[in-house]
């Protein structure tokens, strides 16, 4: 079976590779409710992308501005320790976010991260340069 998925808001449908049978009216919750929070993650928007963000670790300071301003919540976060960890009043758990890579399953390639990075630690490259 193939699932028909919408592209954009207008509801234009096209066949997608990932397969899921459309359920019948007895199999879905009543009233249009969606009970699986955040299940949009099953819908990969990464194939909208024509430019891909490339991280340049030497320039990155882990300021996390790219994470803050990503419209698609697709800058991954790694947790690291505060340099002051162990001092009074500072938790011993990781308490600072660190750049953890781009989630290319969802990145639409808008390039805001590259545009706004104060350290020019992100570059946008054409998607066709990549073969994966």
């Amino acid at each position: 079976m193939t699932e028909q998925l919408k592209e954009g808001n207008g509801g234009h449908t096209h066949q997608k590779e990932h397969k899921q049978k459309l359920k019948n009216w007895k199999e879905i919750p009543i009233g249009g409710k969606i009970l699986e929070a955040g299940n949009s993650k099953e819908y990969k928007t990464g194939d909208w992308r024509t430019f891909r963000p490339i991280h340049i670790p030497e320039k990155c300071t882990n300021c996390m501005i790219c994470w803050m301003i990503c419209p698609d919540s697709c800058v991954n976060v790694g947790g690291v320790d505060d340099p002051n960890k162990g001092k009074k009043g500072v938790s011993d758990k990781p308490n600072l976010g660190n750049f953890g890579g781009f989630d290319l399953d969802y990145c639409k390639g808008c390039g805001i991260c590259a545009e706004e990075c104060p350290f020019k630690a992100i570059e946008m490259k054409e998607e066709k340069e990549f073969k994966d």
Binding site: K6, L22, G32, K33, I34, A37
Partner: peptide, 13 residues
């Protein structure tokens, strides 16, 4: 248990 009420529901459902 976060529930979504009132989604956009097109020709599929």
């Amino acid at each position: 248990k976060p529930v979504t009420y009132g989604p956009l529901d097109l020709f599929d459902y």
